[in-house]
Write a protein that binds this DNA or RNA. Sequence first.
RNA 1: GGUCCCGUGGUGCAGUUUGGAGUGCACGCCGCCCUGUCAAGGCGGAGGCCGCGGGUUCAAAUCCCGUCGGGACCGCCA
Length: 627
Amino acid sequence: MRARSRCAICAATPASYAWRAPTFSTRSRRHLHDDPRRERKELFVSETRATTMRTDMCGALRATDAGRTVSVCGWVARRREHGEHLAFIDLRDHTGLVQCVIHGDHDLRSEYVARITGVVRPRPEGTVNASLGTGDIEIQDCIVEILASAEPPPFPLDARADDVDENVRLRFRYLDLRRERLQRNLRARAAVNSAVRRAMERQGFAEVETPMLMPSTPEGAREFLVPSRKEPGSFYALPQSPQLFKQLLMVGGFDRYFQIARCLRDEDLRADRQYEFMQLDAEMSFVDQDDVLAAISEAVLDAAEAVTGERPDAIPRITWHEAMDRYGVDKPDLRFAMELTELTPIFAETGFKAFAGASSIKGIRVPGRAEEFGRSKLDALTDRAKKLGAKGLVWMRVAADGTLDSPVAKFLVEAEQQALRDALAAEPGDLLLVVADEWATSCEVLGHLRNDLGRPPVHKGPYKYVWVVDFPMFVGVSDAGIPKPGHHPFTRPHPDDIDKLESDPMNVRSRAYDLVLNGWELGSGSIRIHEPELQQRIFNLLGIAPDEAMKRFGFFLTPFRYGAPPHGGFAFGIDRLVAILAGEENIREVIAFPKTQSGTDPMTNSPTPVDAKQLLDLGLRVLPKVE
RNA sequence: GGUCCCGUGGUGCAGUUUGGAGUGCACGCCGCCCUGUCAAGGCGGAGGCCGCGGGUUCAAAUCCCGUCGGGACCGCCA
């Protein structure tokens, strides 16, 4: 046993895992740290997970094992029969495949579970399989024990199943899980959990569990409710996050808390959203933003390193305002340029009506794609822009001679056209898109178009982490003219803006921050308000009177009267981080038993109706369906 | 709540535009042959409520309406 920590994906030690060749096959789509081009002679130094039934793992055997008598256990991945005298069986466990040479008649079919005992020998000359990690050797003189027979699987348990209807994969999830892809993804997930836990412990965070059954606090996401049997008509809520409890842990003197916490939100599902998901949830006392960002960065970078083998650089920061200004979104994807360019001054004196008087004119340059955008695609882009809230979209194709091919070109004087080309660094063949509107609208519309036109799949290319800081305290106003909190109502205002709370609330920044990776929001956090007076000031702004605040948040507010430390925290989504690191575009691929977009589980058929007796015990009656 | 895409033997597809016999391909499955294969090969065979319901038609996988299921997105996710 080695003292150094192992790769939790493949159980190899750090010294070896960077050299580990794929042991399943070269057809698999993704490899994390595998590189089959490397030298293979010192490939694999693995713990053998020997048991009373086996001596070695299938995928771990190497030429250095030649001569050993071994026992391996696993599933029949493939068989190649040559009559009753000879057959090749590829036996699979989670470490990979090994070829077993079987003489005589054995009824070994797909997915039969078998124990095979034999002698490891180098393969005969000319039969080495370079695409297998175990391809230099095979197990000969085999004794075959069938441990379980199996019906043929409904889909092939290899890379071909990537194309199988996801509903079928989910119905037979336990079979899907046998595949290399899901084995790797879930082991990457385990590696992330482990690295995160170690990073937090190393930094002095204590792991504390918080309740799953808590009072309903209807702000924010829709909650799952759990009826109380003892008090019919009353309900628990499942936590959207441990937010309130973790702040109380700070009041309780824990100083540094973390938890890999299950969170539940009854909102519609997406590629990056499930009802239940896991967060690294953390909170710290006597800190400011820099402390929190540093601690969380440590966990994220450790997690990334554990999966990819490479530690990312320090995570850069960008303010919310700059993110909106340059990328038009609060979760910028920094893997590609196409930045929003400020054009307002160019058209200060313009005679073009759509631009004249607009408070913000911005544009993006879509390099080299003028050709591709004919009239119908440009009309579709314009529709898209309008749906996103713009009054319109000005498009221009840069012709070979540099002139602007656009229905509005005739409204722009030559100096304006030249300044526009210069500002956007336009080249012949480029498509230019311009929006003139309020600053926020111009940014948001172009930000969407930028993502639509330029964004690679989330898992492609380099990993670009970024902290987005200085979020606005309030976003928009309610119908009654009351500001709406951008993060949550316990978020601390930016210290430089506190004086403006009442006079200019919409321009108050908060001490709230997001972590973004490749355009996906990984998580968010904030420095909190720990003084009851400041908290009530915020509630006043939000139109919540003191008695109302006590009614809604009483159990949370009372503790702060007993001495709360300055504190702040963060939470990021484990599922999303793992998905990106594992090269997946959908978090269902990194969850063992996920639900479909409609919230059902094809394997267990949940949710299901329950017996009338159960409802009776809970004091519940189900209403008839409304037509 | 909304928009768009997809439902054809166990799996993946073609067929739908322009209606004409469940017509076809690949994999898998079952049987036989085969002593160096490796997503083995050869021969043979079985397997279909064309998601479901209704309509149009002499005739519907194909056209129309509805519905169910899956997926992507918008709303929503403090």
